[in-house]
Amino acid sequence: MIEVQNLTKRYGGHVAVNNISFKVEEGEILGFLGPNGAGKTTTMNILTGYISASSGVAKIKDIDVLEQPNLAKMNIGYLPEQPPLYLDMTVREYLDFMYDLKKCKLPRREHIAEICKQVKIENVYGRLIKNLSKGYKQRVGFAQALIGNPPVLILDEPTVGLDPKQIIEIRSLIKSLGRQHTVILSSHILQEIEAVCDRIIIINKGVIVADDKTSVLATKYSSDRRLLVRVAGNHDEIFNLLKRVPNVVNVTSFGEKEPGIFEYALEPAEGCDIRRDVSTRIAARNWAIMGMKSMEMTLEDVFIALTREQYVPAGNKKGGR
């Protein structure tokens, strides 16, 4: 659905996007994650035809954005970081204008009414945009992107500046849109991407540093597979027991965390799940497990590790990417 090959954008000597390539399949929700200034917006602006790439190819539905811009743009709904709203218009006038601008062929009244219902702006339909709250403005921007029912939606930080309730609403809206549209969503907020996206591309300083399924990413980049357990009982006896559990390579004690409760970190042999063995053995001695959790890296740790200053992506080490 979306294809990007060796895309580069230079601003004078500054390279905003450096030779990135990726593909997005139909119906996928792709999260674009990176710190501010990583090149997310630049990539999105190139995809939507707002700016041109210095080199490389961007294709929407196999249509080259540079060669057939108008045809490609027909297939895209774009919500920029700051929604492109004419403050002197009412919501109704604005959506009518965008409908004309996008040369939409769907039945006008029904289509616009349906979108308004979808993004819940029916009650402000007749009001001037400049008098709307930020949340409503963002939704009007969303409505604008949905006009013409484009197969591809590109959303640049769609929840920035919204209150928590609105954020949850917008997220569930994006999720529901993902069923009929291919969505690219950018954010520097990790939880957002984690909550909404099927796949994540982490971008830093114009380079893709990770590209994988949301669920895979955390485990793939996690070097820490340790298990943290809290057990109530005798410290030394527990320690010795844990050491004897099959497939446990190493045990570290963290001492008494609560009165009579001790914490240990267990390192399993690679690819082994030791949780069942640990719990049955402790239960057999009539001790109690007060807590057990895996110490694997959260997505946040992965993100921080990948976007650290010194980090060189795996592909670049080989000189590949």
Binding site: T48, K73, M74, I76, P84, Y86, M98, L101, Q144
Partner: peptide, 14 residues
């Protein structure tokens, strides 16, 4: 200034 040019330039209009 209002960034509304993003709507114009990303629409199928020359």
């Amino acid at each position: 200034r209002q960034k509304t040019d993003q709507a114009l330039l990303t629409s199928p209009v020359s």
